[in-house]
Amino acid sequence: MELLDQISENLQKGKAKAVKELVRQAIDEGIPADTILNEGLISGMDVIGAKFKANEIFVPEVLIAARAMNMGAALLKPILAEDGAKTTGKVCIGTVKGDLHDIGKNLVRMMLESKGLEVIDLGVDVTAERFVETAQKEGCQIICCSALLTTTMGVMADVVKAAKDAGIRDQVKIMIGGAPVTQAYCQQIGADAYTPDAATAAEVAVALLKG
């Protein structure tokens, strides 16, 4: 469908206004909202994610594409809600206590959203307790922690421990990432998954939700 391709292409170029207009046009033409979302917006973000992962495009290009996606998605949201569409999973994300680096965390959030997941963004400087309390209260299946400092990445181990102490460790998956984090560290602290980039993070989250 040509219109959906146009949405995807304009999204990839970060043309927010064009995306908004095309989404409106698609709604007017009677294309179902979830089709517009999946085959227009999400398919465009999938291309962006793949190119970012391959280091073919850069952080600002992802940001402007995600902004365009949000513009389009805002128009679809009320219709999807009316249709009773359910999101495929719920995630809470934040940068750990003592750490203020948030671009990586925000990119992971955008990529998760572009997979249709509902994301609660706790911002920066988030304590282990707050991650776990939020997961409990909101029923999140995944906790995502970002740390950019070797001096703060230890908080991620605290999150794993806090989830155990709260008795929810078997109900929640814990994903970790950020510049100094490695697969070995993930194993060492008993978290569930590490990925080096945001696009892969979203793919892994979807896989974890499928079980």
Partner: peptide, 12 residues
């Protein structure tokens, strides 16, 4: 720069 790449393309 960041851990994975430049923040913008070399050409930009």
């Amino acid at each position: 720069g960041n851990q994975n790449n430049l923040f913008l393309s070399p050409d930009l």
